[in-house]
Design a protein around this nucleic acid. Structure first.
Lengths: 222, 222
DNA sequence: ACGTGGATGAGTACACCGTACGCATCGTGT
DNA sequence: ACACGATGCGTACGGTGTACTCATCCACGT
């Protein structure tokens, strides 16, 4: 059929990402991706070994698109760069919700973009004079903090939220919606957390929580 | 068949957990769980609405088993209790490796045990005088730190490691095994991280990283 | 003691999945 | 003109979750 535009791994990955964005991660099947491309199902296997490889390629692609390595960070301190990293990751997970499921099920990414991203983050922390493994730990902590925050806000894989900015979707509100009131009375502190919550009081809880983490990072250079 | 011991949701969940522990998370299918119980596949649906509900029940069960709520924590400071929480979580993910995939794919748990666990953690942080949402953020950060560490050590879902204690399985060694040397030279800091790594230098990296996080937690009581 | 009805278990069937295999077709080098 | 490798595709198989239907058993009212 599509002899004019030959099948490529790139085209397949693009189609798969579109399917995932539009119909969810579970909808990404070889048949549906092929349908989206207007090709036969088995044609995909000429360019992709596995479904696993397809998913890995999807993750690599998206990871690269949201990498900070291209940003102009001159004049930024290490803290600002960590915020930039966290915001980029946040946007990535928000604009491609399936990425949460895809990355957590998968092995940690080792594509060139991921490595470059790690290098960039290590570079950003270099003024602190940390030991390499310390810096790596900070980066991992920041990254997992983002994923944890995203998971709380998204509230699971099937959930759909309309807010894409971190300040808008508030975790406290999520909990409120879920908890039945008769359960909650046995847990006074939890109740205080859920009911005594004022949405406007902490506008940018995401950045605040990140700063909490960064406050614990020692500066060994001075 | 098994009229003597009637089918229960509890029995089904137990069987499913056994299957997951022995054959991996992907092996948990309704047919296999039923086979493990010696019953028909469809019999399970009398006690479980969905496969999703089954998995949720599995997660709830295991979560409850590793809860800190039963531990004797008198005389422990908030920091020790956070360490206890983190260690419990670590052991849980290590002894039931499928839990990583199960929890990250799923919605955040809202079973009674999970709520009690959250209440316990909030209680543990109470001497710090934090605002509720601040305390919740600390707990989330600790929890996600554990998951991130576990994921790094496990190195993906299919990987099998023989080490179960956090001090033994070192993340740096994992990276070393994965990276091809020709790639790494373009990333000097990454290279330093990977090659300049001394396994004996940081014995308990898990606890150290946790302390890094806890160092950033403010004490508003004094 | 005897139906009888509801609860429980099990079997069949369907749509969908990943993918191994083999065949048709095309573009290109000789 | 011919052969051949590369590319696309159709069929088929074993697996999955589960909707629907029937078989069986236990407890209960009469």
């Amino acid at each position: 059929m599509n002899r004019r535009t030959p099948l490529t791994q790139d085209r397949i990955v693009t189609a798969a990402i579109e399917v995932a964005d539009e119909q969810g991660f579970d909808a990404v099947s070889m048949r549906r991706v092929a349908l989206h491309l207007g090709t036969g199902t088995m044609s995909l296997y000429r360019h992709v070994a596995d479904k696993g490889e397809l998913v890995s390629a999807m993750v690599d692609r998206v990871t690269g698109e949201y990498s900070c390595t291209g940003a102009d960070t001159s004049g930024m301190g290490w803290r600002e760069r960590m915020h930039l990293l966290a915001r980029s990751d946040w946007r990535m997970f928000m604009e491609h919700r399936w990425m949460l499921a895809a990355t957590t099920t998968l092995a940690p990414p080792f594509g060139p973009d991921s490595l470059a991203s790690m290098e960039w983050a290590l570079e950003a922390l270099s003024p602190l004079g940390l030991a390499p493994h310390e810096a790596a730990r900070v980066i991992m902590t920041v990254t997992t903090y983002v994923q944890g925050s995203v998971r709380v806000v998204l509230g699971g894989p099937g959930q759909v939220r309309d807010q894409d900015s971190p300040g808008a979707a508030d975790p406290g509100l999520q909990w409120q919606a879920r908890l039945r009131d008769q359960d909650i009375h046995r847990f006074p502190r939890l109740e205080e957390l859920v009911h005594g919550h004022r949405p406007e009081a902490d506008r940018d809880w995401f950045a605040d929580g990140l700063d909490l983490i960064l406050d614990g990072v020692p500066d060994r250079s001075r």
